[in-house]
Design a protein around this nucleic acid. Structure first.
Lengths: 342, 342
DNA sequence: TTAAATTATGCAAAGGTTTGCGGAGAAAAC
DNA sequence: GTTTTCTCCGCAAACCTTTGCATAATTTAA
């Protein structure tokens, strides 16, 4: 019973005109008679004509598809940013091909490979925290597939990216704690390789200097963001000589793990020790002891911006090629959000 | 600088053979001389030949893409099930085109439309809770695009689906509470239209009857799953004449909202009132008062199964067409998981 | 050697669409 | 009435690949 989709040829045959005429009629091409145009559009509707996109993709060397690769969908930050990506893409008639690296470089490569084969028009990517090799990104360039990075950005020059301002975000967070009277402030940072970690450290250092406090590098420890990684980091901080009374954590997940660990170690949350973190996830509003405040990074906007840049890059290609490229480096401001006590 | 991708024609020209030979050489076709095969494969590698998938898609009338539509990526249940889908798809060389309905029927339709245009080979969908009209699903059938539903399933006959066994899940949940001594048990159910809601009610009723307890329909209230919806539902239960000492909620999000509301109303959690819910999300492990237990629905497995069915449907099409169709109705068993006290 | 069987290669069509170019026919200008 | 100018439409190529069928080349059998 499966009906074959109507084609332009079919319409042409029934109307006894050439299929190029049909094509033009359907596209409101100027060189077309009003009469025939209407006849064609009429019949097209009757036969439920729908253009064969695969043919068009092929013909136009374009797929109106963008590939999106992120580490982990389950993390609220990423699923929210995908909302921004998807909405923007949809508005511009693009669809989203999704891939998760699960923080494996190998998977990341493989997904990128598949996407290249699927001839995506562009790629948005937040790299795996374990990715050390950047060749697979370079290779996309050769094929003229534009790439926009966001949030987790590789240390490469000549790339487009959008990220949130971690330096100023950290500044806000640390200043907030200092204003509350804390003098010894620890930091559980993420993997050192990540740009985001470096910026947090930078921001931490800046605000300490600003307030004429000593910057003690031993108070900045790294976690690989896993539960045990965070616990190790906490252990290190809690057993440090200069007992920190407040800790800034890499994100809310780390914060929650850290808080649980602090409780296990008999620290009274918000008395013995306070927490401030990043991401401002809804999860923390349900938590028993949420961090005092969290730096909102506006993932939706980041996704949106990244997509807008990509759209521009994908369309530019046609017109002005060969000009020296300008690289977009968009910084989305972050904002410390206080968690109200209930 | 942008190099044009190598085509089969290019290889053929350089080797002075016909491009059909090249095609066959690259596919290890039996009718091909070993010498030429090697020569071709050698050159293909040198020129970094990569087949133009869009051409192949077009030629084969297949895109190796499956569309996945879910209500909300941010919900852990769905993002986990997508993991199952993506992994299974990837293993079979399929890619995933993603769309979120955000629980809007209109968006759902639109996404489906776009996916149809993109000529996806099949669709996996968990429908929006506000979808009342099912025409857009029917229409896919006409085009021979197989659809597999999961978790949120429309009330249609002749469909393929996978869902978790809510009846037995609810049975486990309620029995658990009864065994703990509760006699008056309330339920905050989801929207009545959802099959999942009906099944929960069914399970609730069954276990009451089984234990020779009276089934009181006024103890089963519905929430639209929003915060206020849940609060309204809670208000109704708390003000009911027969004070329930335990409540089964539609999912963990509802549970957390309900628990917060109960606290606001000065109920002591796990003393005055206990909660059991569905989904078993990691979120609840961070919560101050998580539900006592939660019914794990194995979203990853659901996604996996749905994809496996879809793969089968997509491949069947070719061979045996016209046979009367068999509809898959896969029930994934659910499992009550107790939350340890710490 | 030659005929027969086998193996390797080429030809050409098909899949649906867009688009530059040329030409037919009609309207306008002289 | 002839030429010029438009307006509208058809032809055909191109995008790249796969594949059935025919044919050329080679091997095997007689």
């Amino acid at each position: 019973m499966e009906q074959k989709p109507t084609t332009i040829k079919e319409i042409a045959k029934q109307l006894n005109i050439s299929f190029s005429t049909v094509s033009r009629a359907l596209h409101d091409h100027p060189n077309i008679g009003l009469r025939t145009k209407l006849r064609v559009q009429q019949l097209a509707k009757e036969l439920h004509y729908e253009p064969n996109q695969t043919a068009i993709f092929f013909q136009q060397r374009k797929t109106f598809t963008i590939g999106v690769i992120i580490p982990e969908l389950a993390e609220a930050f990423f699923s929210t940013s995908i909302n921004g990506i998807e909405d923007t893409a949809e508005k511009n008639k693009y669809t989203v091909l999704l891939g998760q690296s699960h923080d494996s470089e190998e998977r990341e490569k493989k997904i990128l490979e598949t996407m290249k084969q699927h001839r995506v028009d562009g790629v948005i990517i937040s790299i795996s925290k374990n990715t050390v090799n950047y060749e697979h990104f370079e290779s996309l360039k050769k094929y003229g597939i534009p790439v926009v990075f966001f949030d987790r950005i590789p240390k490469m020059s000549d790339i487009h990216y959008v990220s949130s301002n971690m330096i100023s975000g950290t500044l806000q967070a640390v200043s907030f704690l200092i204003k509350k009277g804390h003098r010894v402030i620890g930091m559980i940072n993420g993997p050192e390789k990540l740009l985001a970690s470096q910026e947090r450290k930078e921001g931490y250092q800046q605000s300490m200097t600003k307030s004429r406090l000593k910057f003690d590098p031993s108070l900045v420890v790294n976690s690989d963001l896993s539960l045990t990684g965070t616990q190790l980091a906490m252990e290190e901080l809690l057993s440090s000589k200069r007992k920190p009374t407040a800790i800034v954590t890499f994100n809310d997940y780390v914060a929650l793990d850290a808080i649980q660990y602090a409780q296990k170690r008999k620290r009274k949350i918000n008395k013995d020790i306070c927490f401030v973190s990043f991401a401002n996830l809804p999860i923390s509003s349900y938590s028993a002891y949420p961090p005092l405040a969290s730096v909102e990074q506006y993932p939706y906007i980041q996704g949106q911006k990244a997509t807008e840049i990509l759209l521009e890059l994908m369309n530019k290609n046609k017109d002005e090629t060969g000009q020296k490229e300008v690289y977009y480096k968009i910084i989305v401001e972050s904002q410390l959000v206080l968690h109200e006590k209930k």
